[in-house]
Simulated scan of single mutants.
Amino acid sequence: MAPTLAAAASSDWFETQGGRVRLVVLPERADGTIPALLDVQLKPGWKTYWRDPGQSGIPPSISFSPASGLALQTMRFPVPKQFDDGYSRYAGYDQSVALPLTLRRDGSAPDGSKVSASIFLGVCKDICIPVQAELTVDLQASATAGSQDEAVVAVAEAALPEAPSPDFAVSDARWSADGKSISVTFTAPARRSDKPPQVFVSGPEGFQFGSGAAPERIGDAYRVDVPLLHKPKSASLSGAAILFTVESGGRSMETPLAID
């Protein structure tokens, strides 16, 4: 990142049939992290996918060119919705979505003026369209961006699931004996309607979980069994980094699962 960068900088919008997408990059923070954003704006009636869509779909991905001198540390997602198109169930979004990114320098020598990234995602209406694009942020043009894009990033970060709290947390998680599903017991805030808590599970690259599992009420808590649809043959269930995401009562929470 250029040392003089003092405001957000944004790529041009990449236009596609179902909407448009851009990359926003903010100044480097004191801890060495660089906040950024993948901004996906959808046209009415179009959808895009969560990080683990389930039975079908293309999860968003982004990688940075070596010349940028940056690497992706995290891509975070607001809680998605569950969809059923009659053929498959999947998790995603039916409105525009902004995905906060955390970047770090990767040790290579950047050119100091531009950040280039390759993005790949899917958008769907009657058909699904793969979207592949190269997005470039000119850091020297940051004077034309600034506070408006910084506010967009702040709003996107505020929309992310909260951390566990006494009334919203996982109390137990374990694999089934055959390793084909994961059972999670959790507490959640009171519901505002008859809609049960919505649960989503995601794992490392190559893991794929089913969506749409219905939690069962057990006393003051809930229990849900989520099927594991696929994992790499070489991957071990022991120690696998699994994320549990749940929405209930107008709130959402996300936490890693501690499973022996």
Rank of each mutant, 00 (worst) to 15 (best):
L257S: 06
W13S: 05
D167H: 10
E205Y: 09
A240F: 12
L38P: 07
T187K: 13
W13R: 04
G212A: 06
V201Q: 01
T245R: 06
E254G: 10
Q140Y: 09
A214C: 06
A214E: 10
D167C: 11
S181V: 07
F83L: 12
D220F: 07
Q208I: 15
Q208D: 07
P80G: 13
G32L: 14
D52G: 02
S147W: 05
L42Y: 01
A91V: 06
K114N: 12
V153L: 15
P232W: 00
Q17C: 08
P232T: 04
G45A: 13
Q148L: 15
V224T: 03
L72V: 11
V115Y: 00
A145Y: 12
G212D: 04
S176M: 09
G122C: 03
V170P: 06
R105I: 08
P189G: 08
R217L: 12
A2H: 07
F244Y: 08
G18K: 05
Y93H: 03
S68G: 09
I58P: 00
W175K: 03
G107P: 06
T102P: 12
G54Q: 03
L70V: 05
A141I: 15
S65C: 04
G54L: 00
Q148S: 11
R217P: 06
T33A: 11
S252P: 05
E254I: 12
P66N: 09
M253R: 12
P53I: 00
V79T: 14
H230A: 15
A67V: 13
S234C: 08
V246Y: 01
L42K: 05
L139G: 07
P59N: 01
L229N: 01
